[in-house]
């Protein structure tokens, strides 16, 4: 499937994140010989958090349909334990920004993010959420990227991305959590 890609080194790049793993700013370096118990506990917690990402049912436009397709039977993100989509932001862990964020929606998105309990993660799905996409230049009302409003952990490009691409983004997020590199984890210093 990588037959025409000119910028991936191997035929099958490792799963989880588009190569941003090394040298990510703020990466926690392991201390040799110290903190065994704590780091083991952290591993358990990170394992639990990464395997229990409950998404918020939040979709603004087209990408929402592909998000529904991921929930659907063919792609089925329940295999990873993501299927407990919560309508209330209090109980959700990950907010998948599926669709365009316009200026009027911006404060609402910020509020939703604020209402979520820590730790919380954000996936920007599709061109609109990453950068405004097709609405980058010619419109007056679209936020040029959701990361102007809330911090984003994983970006997945596409318009809309395939369901597999969203699954890839979710797996990337899992990897990121397991490595302790999300904004939440760095902020709280674990």
């Amino acid at each position: 499937m990588n037959n025409a890609s000119n910028n991936s080194e191997s035929a099958n790049p490792p799963l989880g994140g588009g190569g941003a793993a090394e040298g990510f700013p703020g990466e926690i370096q392991e201390v040799p010989g110290g903190g065994i118990v704590l780091s083991k506990l952290d591993d358990v917690i990170n394992w639990a958090r990464s395997n229990s990402l409950w998404p918020l049912t939040f979709a603004t436009s087209c990408c929402g349909i592909e998000y529904m397709a991921v929930a659907g039977a063919k792609y089925d993100f329940s295999r990873f334990g993501f299927e407990v989509a919560r309508a209330s932001p209090r109980q959700a862990d990950v907010i998948i920004i599926a669709g365009t964020i316009v200026n009027k929606m911006g404060p609402v998105l910020k509020r939703l993010y604020d209402q979520m309990g820590d730790p919380k993660y954000v996936i920007a799905m599709g061109a609109c959420a990453i950068s405004g996409g097709p609405f980058f230049y010619n419109t007056y009302s679209v936020v040029k990227g959701a990361d102007h409003i809330i911090p984003v952990d994983v970006y997945v490009a596409g318009c809309p991305p395939r369901p597999e691409a969203l699954l890839h983004a979710l797996i990337s997020l899992q990897e990121k959590i397991k490595k302790g590199m999300t904004r939440e984890q760095i902020k709280s210093g674990i």
Partner: peptide, 15 residues
């Protein structure tokens, strides 16, 4: 309304 107003009509004028 207006939470997903992307001004497609206006945008089309420049395409």
């Amino acid at each position: 309304l207006g939470y997903i107003h992307r001004s497609i009509e206006k945008m089309c004028e420049s395409l």
